[in-house]
Design a protein around this nucleic acid. Structure first.
Length: 323
DNA sequence: TTGTGACCTACTCC
DNA sequence: AGGAGTAGGTCAC
């Protein structure tokens, strides 16, 4: 029997429907209306929320008693039939960490950004509760190496292939196999580049294989995690030594898995936003140079403050919606 | 330093 | 039907 847990959480602090699919993580699926499913820390999670709480189930493949009780799917009205326990401390701690609920008060941050920036205030109306996730650095890094010059649909498919090809199968549920994200070591194996080429990764196949080999030979996965304890610019410089990791991807990893809340990935959208609404002098620039890249990041950090990277993600949503 | 073009693929548009 | 254009960049001149 699947057990549902819950903890109190206002929608202004966390909106799952936007946060989970706005291009931070490429693995969350809406397995049934209002239910979000993904693998986290080797377990299968399904989340749901209402105005006042987040509800969740966890299936641990190592726990035999769980194996048959997975729920990624509910018929209408099913939810009320499930008993809902208050919470399980260790599971709740995983989610609180992933959503950074104890790190940042989003309501206060929106207030701060809106006060500092009238443009932000307009955006915030439509996009409450958008948070930066605290992702696993390995998954975050390799997913965003896939993102270059690419679209979200294809990126998601590539990440899925990475998992089914090189990850570990955790369990099957509702006819779907769920995998862990591959380790650096498994991506550093023989023939990975050729295989990824076959799977349609294009030139990113080389980036993935080389980056994995480089980390496996010169560092370790722990090294990647340890960048959480280094200053922003140092962590970014380290990441940019990796093949296929330029300024934008490095900033994505800094922001989304290495705790650098001020990192601003300047992609084509951010460049457009900056030129259109904040820095008109950029309109005459033909391309995004290194110095312009830095100039844009510094501008927004100055405007929005320490959590500028978080505010930036909300603004990008507005830009995408406007298209 | 800044500017250009190539790089893989899949999907959209005409 | 099929070619051009493009999508949350990076690397090499």
């Amino acid at each position: 029997m699947t057990r549902w847990y819950s903890f109190p959480c206002k929608i202004q602090e966390l909106q799952l429907s936007i946060t989970l699919v706005c291009g931070q993580s490429f693995r969350w699926r809406e397995s049934s209306p209002g239910l979000w499913t993904n693998v986290l820390e080797g377990k299968l999670w399904t989340l749901r929320q209402d105005d006042s709480a987040v509800y969740y189930t966890v299936t641990d493949p190592d726990d035999a008693s769980d194996a048959l009780g997975s729920v990624t799917h509910l018929e209408a009205g099913d939810f009320s039939k499930h008993a809902c326990s208050e919470s399980d401390d260790k599971y709740e701690a995983v989610l609180r960490d992933y959503f950074q609920l104890d790190r940042a008060n989003l309501t206060a941050l929106y207030e701060h950004w809106g006060t500092a920036d009238p443009n932000f205030r307009k955006v915030a109306v439509d996009f409450a509760g958008v948070r930066i996730l605290r992702q696993d650095p390995v998954e975050n890094l390799f997913s965003f190496i896939c993102s270059s010059n690419n679209n979200i649909t294809r990126i998601s498919g590539m990440v899925e292939k990475l998992c089914s090809e090189y990850g570990k199968k955790l369990l099957e549920c509702g006819g779907i196999d769920y995998y862990s994200f591959p380790s650096v070591k498994s991506l550093a194996g023989e023939g990975v580049e050729d295989r990824l080429r076959e799977l349609g990764f294009g030139y990113r196949a080389k980036y993935i294989a080389q980056t994995a080999s480089y980390i496996a030979e010169n560092h370790s996965e722990l090294w990647l995690y340890s960048l959480r304890d280094r200053p922003y610019l140092e962590a970014k410089a380290e990441l940019m030594k990796l093949c296929g990791v330029g300024a934008k991807v490095a900033d994505c990893v800094c922001l989304m898995s290495l705790d650098k809340s001020g990192a601003i990935p300047v992609d084509t959208h951010v460049w457009q936003i900056a030129a259109a609404s904040y820095m008109p002098q950029l309109k005459q620039k033909k391309s995004l140079t290194d110095s312009t890249y830095q100039e844009i990041g510094n501008f927004f950090r100055d405007l929005w403050g320490d959590y500028a990277g978080w505010a930036h993600s909300v603004s990008v949503l507005f830009c995408l919606q406007a298209q």
